[in-house]
Design a protein around this nucleic acid. Structure first.
Lengths: 199, 199
DNA sequence: ATTATCTATAGATCTATAGATAATGC
DNA sequence: ATTATCTATAGATCTATAGATAATGC
């Protein structure tokens, strides 16, 4: 199997994953039938089983694809930064803006909830702690605070209307987290007031 | 309809809600059939529709019942406290201990996720802010941080084994949140080192 | 007589597969 | 010849209701 055939297969697979992503923005995956997915992907019903053993498998891959994109986006926006506190702030500020900058991603992340394998890696936190920039007793607790708070603010943002209020909440969350991690008020605000790289 | 008949009806209803609670500790509600619920409640299948229009309705009520219990428990544990910072700390410390003190509640809360109508009321936070004890820019963000962080740490606790590690993480979360809300390190630790009322 | 419960089932799903079809590989 | 796609369907659900049964109310 080479060339065109392989390409066509990949295309069908991509269409299914993409349909799953679209459905995830507005529907509870448990209530979506495989028929609906293949219809949305414009693919024959039976083709589904050529690619995925179950619905769950497909939706997991769709969420993983979203997380990959998300990680790449954050990496691109933070790779030039030398201050780990700023890297965290940028990741938080960009992600918490998703309700208006990337509404489809925001809704999928919201639906995935705490299980979402987001770009706020525990290793980044450990590194920031090791170099003395962030201060906390327990990296797992710190990581849970970042993930949980961000998901909470993201959900609020999805219900809010005004983009500028969403931005404001995003920045306030970043300040709050930096304060949680030992930065003094003034330093936290200074870090968060730095301009945000384009996403 | 008075007396015995009414009592019997209430009993059936309670059995269904209780069965839903038990199922919620180990199963995804979307994958549980009404037949399974009525079997678990030891009730005829048709009785279900005498009480609830749909599965969703029942599970929502079951979660609400858990939240009511939870709220009552936190209220009992905090009602004597005059320091709002300590009240928050106690609520957080008790709830984050649920994985070993109340495992069934913990698993249900974890499953309900950010939609869980927990006992960390935004009004309590506003009050603590008004009296100058906690400091934040935005009560909605603050509330999302409390809920989200707590859910994150609760989930970690469910995967952890050792109760004393869970307790330690719970206390560290409380310290972190107090620091986020403007308490200095020493003050935060002092508040969290106060003895915990029995749940 | 009234009311809730229970049993049984019709009808509507939904999943997984079998077999036919169409397109590429060699 | 091989491979993936598509169509059609068998079988297994699951929901919602109709009608029978049992118990209380008056």
């Amino acid at each position: 199997m080479t060339g065109r055939l392989e390409r066509r297969k990949a295309q069908t697979r991509a269409a299914l994953i993409d349909a799953a992503r679209t459905l995830l923005t507005s529907r509870d995956p448990a209530g979506v039938s495989i028929q609906e997915i293949t219809d949305a992907a414009d693919v024959g019903f039976g083709s589904f089983y050529n690619h995925f053993p179950s619905k769950q498998e497909l939706f997991d891959l769709a969420v993983a694809a979203v997380a990959d994109e998300h990680r790449a986006m954050i990496r691109a926006a933070t790779e030039g930064l030398t201050d780990p506190a700023e890297a965290l702030a940028v990741a938080v500020r960009l992600t918490a803006r998703f309700p208006h900058t990337h509404p489809a991603l925001a809704r999928i992340i919201d639906r995935a909830g705490l299980g979402y394998p987001g770009p706020w890696s525990i290793d980044d936190l450990r590194h920031a702690h090791a170099v003395g920039r962030l201060c906390f007793d327990d990296a797992e607790v710190a990581s849970a605070c970042v993930s949980g708070s961000l998901l909470g603010v993201l959900r609020n943002g999805l219900r809010a209307g005004d983009p500028s209020l969403v931005d404001q909440a995003a920045d306030r969350l970043a300040v709050s987290l930096l304060r949680m991690f030992g930065l003094v008020e003034g330093d936290a605000r200074k870090v968060v007031n730095r301009p945000l790289p384009a996403a």
